[in-house]
């Protein structure tokens, strides 16, 4: 009973409550909201961001940040376009682009782990550098004309009404949950984020874990960039520009502490559902982009304050127990 009670009064429980209210509100406000087509669209329009948010959960819990993810997405999409333009078949270009993504992560990890620079600074620099590279490759003209099977992967339903990327997201979410909450690696990620010193004294290979997390972050971002290219069927130097803010907003709203050591995959997934249904609800209510940005900006501020709310929320709910 206490376990159930604790779960319901946790941050995740609060997010679930918000999500239910949001769905109810949206469903009442627009008859379109609950239709299957709209629910698929709701995911489909942001699927690349939410896939990256799963990997970002590990990065931030680990006490780091990766600002370069959106630029890696852009670089991956543009490299794919460039390779396609150079005559490389898509089936060969995809693994090359994924390797490039892993290499981007390796580059980030080198400066963070080997040289010891803060990830904030390193990934800020590579955010600019990778974006610059993407723009050099493709400039401002669009490259399209990808093979039909590649475009279909992003645009057409694969199983039932669900496109490949949505199925992939749910599979990756399950994998992330197991990895973070049920494996030694997951515990190491969390312990390092909570206290690097404790982790080092306990014999955890901090450098290796951090490298793995940063490389995975870029690798997943490259995959997301390819999914974006498939969904829109053409790439340009500004692909995914500015996505890092939305991604980090989602992860922080999910209860992952910006200081590391705290967070769960369940929280991130709930935050994803909240942000997507909020966006979709605002779009169906015909709110302009400026208002939507404003609302998401407020959400970012609130989500940075999550640790404060979390403490307050749990004090209020657990007070009777503490007294008795």
């Amino acid at each position: 009973m206490t376990a159930l009670r604790e779960r319901l009064t946790s941050w995740e429980g609060f997010l679930l409550l918000v999500l239910v209210l949001l769905y109810a509100w949206n469903a009442l406000a627009s008859p379109v909201f609950l239709t299957l087509g709209n629910q698929v669209n709701l995911f489909q329009l942001s699927i690349e961001k939410v896939i990256v948010a799963l990997a970002m959960t590990f990065v931030i819990i680990n006490g780091e940040i990766d600002l370069s993810v959106a630029s890696v997405m852009g670089l991956a999409a543009c490299s794919f376009g460039w390779l396609h333009g150079a005559g490389v078949p898509a089936a060969a270009a995809i693994p090359l682009v994924l390797l490039l993504g892993l290499a981007c992560g390796g580059f980030n990890a080198f400066w963070v782990v080997r040289v010891g620079l803060p990830s904030l600074v390193v990934t800020l620099a590579t955010m600019i550098a990778f974006r610059g590279l993407a723009r050099v490759l493709v400039e401002d003209r669009g490259i399209g004309g990808f093979p039909a099977w590649f475009n279909a992967l992003g645009q057409k339903p694969l199983i039932g009404p669900f496109p490949f990327a949505i199925l992939l997201f749910f599979a990756m979410a399950a994998l992330a949950w197991v990895l973070l909450h049920r494996t030694v690696f997951g515990r190491q990620v969390t312990v390092i984020g909570a206290s690097r010193a404790v982790a080092e004294y306990s014999g955890v290979d901090v450098g290796r874990v951090k490298t793995a997390v940063l490389v995975a972050s870029s690798g997943v971002a490259a995959l997301a960039g390819l999914l974006f290219a498939a969904r829109v069927g053409a790439v340009r130097g500004d692909v995914a520009l500015g996505f890092e803010l939305d991604i980090i907003t989602i992860v922080l709203l999910g209860g992952v502490s910006i200081f590391g050591g705290v967070g769960s995959v369940t929280g991130t997934v709930l935050a994803i559902l909240i942000v997507l249904s909020l966006r979709n609800g605002m779009a169906l209510a015909n709110l302009t982009g400026h208002i939507q940005s404003g609302v998401l900006g407020v959400l970012l501020i609130l989500s940075v304050m999550v640790p404060v709310f979390r403490g307050w929320f749990q004090r209020v709910l657990h007070r009777p127990e503490a007294v008795s």
Binding site: G144, Q155, V232, G233, A234, V235
Partner: peptide, 9 residues
């Protein structure tokens, strides 16, 4: 403003 990226939509 989206070039050919708007085509599928």
């Amino acid at each position: 403003n989206a070039g050919d990226q708007i085509v599928p939509a």
